[in-house]
Design a protein around this nucleic acid. Sequence first.
DNA 1: TCTTGCACCTCACGTAACGTGAGGGTTTAG
DNA 2: CTAAACCCTCACGTTACGTGAGGTGCAAGA
Lengths: 258, 258
Amino acid sequence: MATNTIPMLPTRKQTLPPWKVGELAGRTGMSVRALHHYDEIGLLTPSLRTPSGHRLYQQSDVERLQQIQSLRVMGIPLDEVRELLDGARISPREVIDLHLTRLHEHIARQNRLAEWMESLATHMDRIEAPSMDDLCQIIQAMTTMEKYFTAEQLELLRDRRTSITEEHMHEVRDSWNEIIPKVRSAMAANVDPTSPEILAIAKRWKALVEEFTGGDQQLASSVMTMYKNEGPLLQQQLGEVPTPEMFVCIGKACAAMR
Amino acid sequence: MATNTIPMLPTRKQTLPPWKVGELAGRTGMSVRALHHYDEIGLLTPSLRTPSGHRLYQQSDVERLQQIQSLRVMGIPLDEVRELLDGARISPREVIDLHLTRLHEHIARQNRLAEWMESLATHMDRIEAPSMDDLCQIIQAMTTMEKYFTAEQLELLRDRRTSITEEHMHEVRDSWNEIIPKVRSAMAANVDPTSPEILAIAKRWKALVEEFTGGDQQLASSVMTMYKNEGPLLQQQLGEVPTPEMFVCIGKACAAMR
DNA sequence: TCTTGCACCTCACGTAACGTGAGGGTTTAG
DNA sequence: CTAAACCCTCACGTTACGTGAGGTGCAAGA
């Protein structure tokens, strides 16, 4: 490079001695292996070799390498770089736009993941001494819920959760743990759904559902679908869990109440 | 799964028949090949095989797979998942934080790249019919400048560039293309730097520099360093370019002016 | 009972862009 | 002339599987 800063002799440009691979690597910040690799895949083949096979890179090769490096900083894969430099039937502006679009999509995905992990972290902080098992269960619960609820419903639930006290959540949990076994034993005893015993339970059940859904019918049915499909999974995580049969039973009771 | 939604018979859990690989794959959304792979790397080895060698996954294996899937959605590599599930000597909260940090760094890098590519795009839009070569040259210029200027200096230059009209930029370019050959020929003729001829040129030179740098001495020296080190590259892109010798010559002339 | 078809098995190569030796020639400075 | 430094060509390792190739196991219909 320094040889060319002498301004009086610009015509000697072509007579510059070609570079060996190590020299080119050193001057361009590439590794020798990378240059070998570019040669292997036909991206940058030195235009000369010594009789013994040593690679010799001419000025034109150096320029090509600089072009390669330029395109690579955009994150363009090597085979695409080769296509662009060899038969460029796509405009540079399109190249930029295309990769910018890809990049933005990638960033958006990563941002969603980060957001998701942050909400995961807040969930984890509710547990006193979380084990790896707890972590996995919470992740499973979150991904499961994402399958059954829309984004708005999830946000609504998130809001409601933060606006509610920790104790109240436990109270609700305890209520379910009390009610569900009652329903189960009543059903096992073949009690009539319209009997006063079940009607009383159904009233509490409806109140709990009402409180959770805030009267949102869509939300209520999403919850039911989820419990129907993911019964065993939720049971593992929540303890007592309503079965489809219970939904039927309580549904009959509610119908009888009207 | 459906077999377990019958709530009256929870004790039959263990007697569930084990699953073959295709069945497990179908139910968990994994591919058979992935399960084979997990087996190969010792991440999930089915606890049973049929005499003929068919893999049989028990309930415990299914649970492990669910844990694996849970951790994988965070983007944790497989060997790390194995470490976490086997000998978890790191707390789940740390796992989340660690990967969240990684993720944020990654996002930050991608964002910087996106920003960079957007500014690249605006540069490209200044060229009428940009070729792939123009694209590479602009990229080179941008990366080169990033080596010599600080972030603030670059922003300053960006601001100045947008506040200036296109024509004016061409005028400045033309001025340099006029002045530099004059200096070169004067130097070739060994004209004294303190001669009125050179002094006149030096005044125009200084004015141009002054306009570009806005009097910022740091900026001026950064520019000089860049021209010194990247002479040939810039020459390729700008046409006429000052050499270190010219800086010396003009420096002498300026000293004589005072 | 035989065959058909499907699910299963074990290799083994391919992916992206090189890093990292191994084993052996070449060049060059002393 | 020799030793250091440099060069060469394989060739495996990396990540998380996809995609056959070639062969076996198993349940059901003819």
